[in-house]
Lab assay of single mutants.
Amino acid sequence: MRSPRTRGRSGRPLSLLLALLCALRAKVCGASGQFELEILSMQNVNGELQNGNCCGGARNPGDRKCTRDECDTYFKVCLKEYQSRVTAGGPCSFGSGSTPVIGGNTFNLKASRGNDRNRIVLPFSFAWPRSYTLLVEAWDSSNDTVQPDSIIEKASHSGMINPSRQWQTLKQNTGVAHFEYQIRVTCDDYYYGFGCNKFCRPRDDFFGHYACDQNGNKTCMEGWMGPECNRAICRQGCSPKHGSCKLPGDCRCQYGWQGLYCDKCIPHPGCVHGICNEPWQCLCETNWGGQLCDKDLNYCGTHQPCLNGGTCSNTGPDKYQCSCPEGYSGPNCEIA
């Protein structure tokens, strides 16, 4: 077999650049994923090309098998939009790539799955459409700058595939050579959905506090709520009108309100015997008056200043008058 000629994957630097851009600016990249293909086995019993010639040398006159050299087999892949009637021409609109030389006439790579040499990765940054057309071609490398490479066999497949970690196996069982391969579509990290176009990256910072479920939905951490999980859940009972919080379990009062639940107004400074319904009010309790509710309107009842059976009459805020019984006098009937 001729010395292998290595063929790198098509578009790999571009895919790395796209992945970097997506990581830095995830909101700009609407989708991100990759179409993967792995060659599993190849069977070319006679070492022939599609045109019937030998990959190298002439045929044995007896059994008609190619004798001089085995094929240097590598694969090309073209991925494009779905076609009900597949045409070989036209651009590979979803991507293209190739393997290096991975074997001779016949080989089996099932035991070495995950080997990069027999895998082609086609990254995409558009919403995966699920339906596709795939062209797979086996080629013989001439290892010659003058002699062109020659095609051994080709296969085409049109179908639908959803993103999954599971592989789907396909076979080419007609023509001079048979080969088996597997395909799958996977979303990149933080991308979800059938189109790999739903973005969700767990975070716990100013912009949100959430994890992501298997469908890419945000699940808020304990103590947080809202579409972006950036609204803290305040202390139970915290007034929704007069209290708020920036951290879970907190209850910060608005100006003019106080209390554990921010449901108590702050009265006017200096208010003595008054209450409030709104901040800075001083609504006097019964029998109290004045701007600060510090004037006693029922001095008689509060202090009972009249002595010796005198009768007390309220005459104004903090004022009274005693009517003394016979034989007593003085402001409080204290003089006998």
Rank of each mutant, 00 (worst) to 15 (best):
R2G: 10
R5P: 15
R9L: 15
R9P: 05
G11W: 15
R12L: 15
R12C: 14
P13R: 01
L14R: 14
L20R: 00
L24R: 01
L24P: 05
R25P: 03
A26T: 12
K27R: 08
C29R: 02
C29W: 07
C29G: 05
G30E: 13
A31P: 02
A31S: 13
E36D: 02
M42V: 01
M42R: 04
V45M: 10
G47V: 15
G47E: 08
L49M: 04
Q50R: 04
N51I: 13
N53S: 01
G57C: 13
R59G: 10
P61T: 10
G62E: 11
D63G: 12
R64G: 15
K65M: 13
R68P: 11
R68H: 07
L79P: 02
E81A: 14
Q83H: 13
Q83R: 13
V86G: 11
G89A: 10
F94Y: 06
P100A: 03
V101I: 06
V101F: 11
V101G: 03
G103E: 03
G104R: 05
T106S: 08
L109R: 03
A111T: 08
S112R: 10
R113L: 13
R119H: 12
I120V: 08
I120S: 01
S125G: 10
R130W: 05
R130T: 08
R130G: 09
R130S: 08
Y132F: 05
Y132C: 03
L134S: 00
V136L: 04
A138V: 11
D140Y: 10
S141F: 12
D144Y: 08
P148H: 07
D149G: 04
D149N: 07
S150I: 13
A155S: 11
A155P: 03
I161S: 08
T169K: 02
T169M: 14
L170R: 11
Q172R: 14
T174K: 04
G175A: 07
H178R: 04
Q182L: 10
Q182P: 00
I183T: 01
R184L: 02
T186S: 09
C187S: 01
D188G: 06
Y191D: 01
Y191N: 02
G195C: 11
K198E: 11
R201C: 10
R201G: 12
D204G: 12
F207C: 11
H209R: 10
Y210C: 12
D213Y: 02
N215H: 08
N215Y: 05
G216A: 03
G216R: 12
K218N: 12
K218T: 13
T219A: 05
G226A: 14
C229F: 00
N230I: 13
A232D: 02
I233M: 14
Q236R: 13
G237S: 06
C238S: 06
P240L: 01
K241M: 08
H242N: 04
H242D: 15
S244P: 10
S244F: 06
S244T: 02
L247R: 14
L247H: 03
G249R: 06
G249D: 04
D250A: 06
Q254H: 06
Y255D: 11
G256V: 00
G256D: 09
W257S: 05
G259V: 00
C262F: 00
C262S: 02
D263V: 04
K264R: 12
C265F: 00
P267T: 06
P269Q: 08
H273N: 06
G274D: 04
I275S: 00
C276G: 01
C276R: 04
P279A: 14
Q281L: 04
C282Y: 01
C284S: 00
C284F: 00
E285G: 04
L292P: 08
K295T: 08
K295R: 14
L297F: 05
L297I: 03
Y299N: 11
Y299S: 09
C306F: 01
T311N: 01
S313T: 06
T315K: 08
G316R: 10
D318A: 09
S323P: 02
E326D: 11
G327A: 06
S329T: 08
P331S: 15
P331R: 11
P331A: 12
N332S: 13
C333S: 02
